[in-house]
């Protein structure tokens, strides 16, 4: 058990140190970067799929083009759809977006992003320290219980 706990602590230290140390200093964000271009574009596509107001779809594409995280999207297609919607060519925008996201779209409700900032680093350090403290405490308790049992 003690080896398992030590291994757990060591693994946690190795795994968490990398991304936490690679942060850029916890700068302030003007917008929520979790609102990715992909999520916003999929919402725009769904709005058109369901035949809702195309103005709402334009807003979503506006936000998608301004989003910090533009991974996983074909920006040219998003711009083309955006321009088409501005010209009220809803069908054209719809088909461009469908081609950009082949298959049925699925939007993940929770968008994870890598940890950043001093507070996240502190959380990782405290987490590792707690694991170490718990490991020491559990080993100590086991020894004490054996002593009580032997007595």
């Amino acid at each position: 058990m003690s080896r398992l706990l030590l291994l757990l602590v060591a693994s946690a230290a190795l795994v968490s140190a990398g991304p936490a140390l690679a942060d850029e200093g916890g700068e302030e964000h003007d917008e929520n970067p979790a609102q990715t271009a992909r999520a916003l574009s999929l919402q725009a596509l769904a709005i058109l799929d369901w035949g809702l107001s195309h103005e709402e779809a334009v807003e979503k594409l506006d936000m998608a083009l301004e989003a910090e995280d533009k991974r996983g999207v074909d920006l040219r297609a998003i711009r083309a759809a955006h321009d088409a919607l501005h010209e009220e060519q809803v069908e054209a925008a719809h088909s461009v977006l469908h081609e950009a996201f082949p298959g049925t779209p699925h939007l993940a409700g929770t968008t994870f992003r890598p940890g950043s900032g001093a507070v996240a680093l502190a959380a990782a350090i405290v987490g590792i320290a707690l694991l170490g403290l718990a490991a020491i405490g559990l080993l100590h308790r086991r020894r004490r219980e054996r002593e009580i049992h032997a007595a």
Binding site: P33, D49, F112, G115, G127
Partner: peptide, 26 residues
Amino acid sequence: GIALILTALRPTGIGPEGVEGIEITK
């Protein structure tokens, strides 16, 4: 400790504001 390490590695985000009338999440 595990929750804190996961918090640093994979903080939960939040998706875009919801649009009523569509269903595209699980």
